[in-house]
């Protein structure tokens, strides 16, 4: 029976590849848009204007404080009541962008706040415009601290993208869910699905680990 299921699964493999491709480009796209959004909101998050700061904080709390599943139901089921109708794919892109943006804005804000006040003051005293201060003084120094958490967020963005399968986007999780109805062997089917995610997330996380090992890691014996 097992080899029969295996044969069936191999026959269904092209669908898994198609689904994997959707996962890859969708999460890739939303990582890019999310990063842009995150940086913009992150800059608002550290601004001195109270209402702007409050709104940016509220946005990041909403995206970080509610499950992504609820957010995607919000976008897919509630936005139409306000006249904004989305196809599943559009809802997925909007949802993932907002999610990534919410997490990245906190990372960016935290990275920028690590820079000592004196740097800002020195730049101001040297006659740098606000744009120049950001571009030449603050961001170059904040970037190394931001990169680690940012890559971590990219991995979790790829993993969160699995949730959009519930509104019918044909990503690799949805392909697995449909396949398991025909090939009733969850072990086989979802191991394959997991393997696809593992193949992107694991190398990326090793990359961060090696990057961070150089700075912080040390051996410890219990």
């Amino acid at each position: 029976m097992f080899s029969f299921y295996l044969q069936k699964l191999i026959a269904a493999f092209p669908f898994f590849l198609e689904g994997f491709w959707v996962t890859v480009w969708l999460s890739g796209l939303c990582i890019v848009t999310g990063t842009i959004l995150g940086f913009l909101v992150g800059l608002l998050r550290i601004s001195n204007i109270k209402p702007v700061k409050f709104m940016a904080g509220f946005y990041s709390d909403i995206t970080r404080g509610t499950p992504f599943l609820v957010q995607i139901f919000f976008i897919y089921f509630i936005f139409p009541e306000f006249g904004i109708q989305f196809e599943p794919m559009e809802a997925a892109i909007v949802g993932l962008t907002l999610l990534n943006g919410g997490f990245i804005c906190e990372i960016v804000a935290a990275g920028i706040e690590m820079i000592p006040k004196g740097q800002w003051e020195a730049a101001e005293a040297s006659g740098f415009s606000p744009y120049q201060r950001m571009r030449y003084i603050i961001l170059p120094q904040a970037t190394p601290g931001i990169l680690g958490p940012l890559t971590g967020q990219y991995i979790s963005g790829i993993k969160e993208s699995a949730i959009i399968s519930v509104i019918g986007v044909m990503d690799v999780t949805r392909v697995g869910w449909l396949t398991v109805q025909r090939i009733p062997n969850g072990l086989l089917v979802f191991s394959l699905v997991a393997l696809f995610y593992f193949s992107i997330c694991y190398p990326t996380s090793r990359l961060i680990a090696r990057f961070e090992e150089k700075t912080t890691h040390r051996e410890i014996i219990l």
């Binding site: 969160e160 699995a162 949730i163 697995g176 997330c201």
Partner: peptide, 14 residues
């Protein structure tokens, strides 16, 4: 490195 939703389905169906 794998999404929780896949793990939940994995245990639920296997």
């Amino acid at each position: 490195s794998t999404p929780l939703i896949v793990q939940v389905y994995f245990f639920y169906f296997s």
